[in-house]
């Protein structure tokens, strides 16, 4: 009896410290990686400005959230940011479309090599980064309201009588629910609608798409709009779950790229799988397992934290997984299919 309780406690601790955070983080990464992979599939380059696009989208949402909050608008237990999200998406979409019109389109007309677009996206990255800092500053911003927890650790302990508590933040649940809805909608769009299919056709064979009468500029515009949606949602969810700080978004670039590449660039399913693989590995490897080890192996009393790597090395985890996958499957986990 004692033993099975121990195992149960270990399980709850695992859920609390590893599974729940990794699922939330994985959802955010997956949404980010989807944006990167869509641009890679359609426009043929990796967008270095994607982290800053997420920051811009989140910032726009935050500004509208503050405005709504000042008007006294509230969604009850749900964060007001949810209501502001459509405005944030619209603002980001406008910015991306304007960028495309003023910058990227010129290089398409010149038939520039994709690597030039990568350099161009660096320039956009500087500008967006500067823009976000200019408008909202570099500090931490809080904009979460509504219910904090779906269930607190104390409630869980009282309910179950276990030693370990399982805390589930409202934002975690929200992240997962929104991510599932967004991903389902995206896949429905890509696989079932005429426009979605034309995007897949374009990313498969541009010349043939042209010969079929598909308008490339329209495909590109729709891609930017979808990317704006994905980036804003990912950025806002990340901000709600953790906090909003422009620099952290820039740093998300590496895990997001890693997720997209591990999954197979250009492949949406791969982006999602990659996001969760990276998130779970990061959390698992940087988590201090001492507590759980104590439940599972009570006889073993480790003197350290039983942490494989300090959390500062979480980037190393994305990187090592990336290298391993590329060594054994150079085209990523899901190859063959594009957008």
């Amino acid at each position: 009896m004692e033993r099975s309780l121990d195992l149960l406690n270990a399980l709850v601790a695992l859920a609390n410290f590893v599974i729940v955070p990794a699922v939330a983080y994985g959802s955010q990464l997956a949404l980010g990686a989807l944006g990167v992979t869509l641009i890679y599939g359609i426009l043929r380059f990796s967008n270095f400005a994607h982290g800053d696009t997420m920051a811009f989208g989140a910032m726009a949402t935050i500004l509208v959230t503050w405005w709504l909050q000042s008007l006294g608008v509230s969604l009850g237990p749900l964060p007001t940011a949810l209501l502001a999200l459509p405005f944030g998406i619209a603002a980001t979409a406008l910015l991306l479309l304007a960028t495309d019109r003023m910058v990227y389109r010129f290089y398409r007309e010149q038939k520039a090599a994709p690597v030039i677009l990568v350099i161009v996206s660096m320039g956009i990255m500087f500008i967006m980064n500067g823009l976000v800092r200019f408008i909202i500053g570099v500090d931490d911003q809080r904009f979460a309201d509504g219910a904090r927890f779906l269930i607190t650790a104390r409630d869980f302990r009282d309910m179950t009588g276990l030693q370990e508590g399982l805390a589930i933040k409202a934002t975690t649940v929200l992240t997962v629910v929104v991510a599932v809805i967004v991903v389902a909608a995206l896949f429905w769009f890509l696989n079932k609608t005429r426009t979605g299919k034309s995007m897949r056709a374009f990313s498969d064979n541009e010349d043939l798409a042209l010969l079929s009468g598909i308008n490339p500029e329209r495909v590109v515009a729709i891609t930017w709009i979808i990317v704006a949606g994905l980036a804003t949602i990912a950025g806002t969810l990340y901000g709600l779950d953790k906090s909003f700080k422009p620099f952290t978004y820039f740093q998300l670039l590496l895990p997001i790229f890693a997720a997209a590449i591990v999954g197979g660039l250009g492949n949406p399913v791969g982006a999602i799988a990659g996001g969760f693989l990276i998130a779970f590995s990061e959390v698992t490897i940087t988590y201090a397992w001492k507590k759980i080890a104590g439940y599972v192996l009570p006889a073993w009393e480790p003197d350290g934290l039983v942490q494989l790597l300090s959390t500062d090395y979480k980037f190393a985890v994305s990187f090592v997984i990336l290298i391993i996958v590329l060594l054994f499957r150079p085209t990523g986990l899901f190859r063959g299919k594009s957008v």
């Binding site: 956009i124 500008i127 980064n129 500067g130």
Partner: peptide, 12 residues
């Protein structure tokens, strides 16, 4: 923060 904006602009 003008500096980042300017650098991006110069590059483009």
């Amino acid at each position: 923060h003008m500096r980042l904006l300017t650098m991006g602009l110069i590059l483009l």
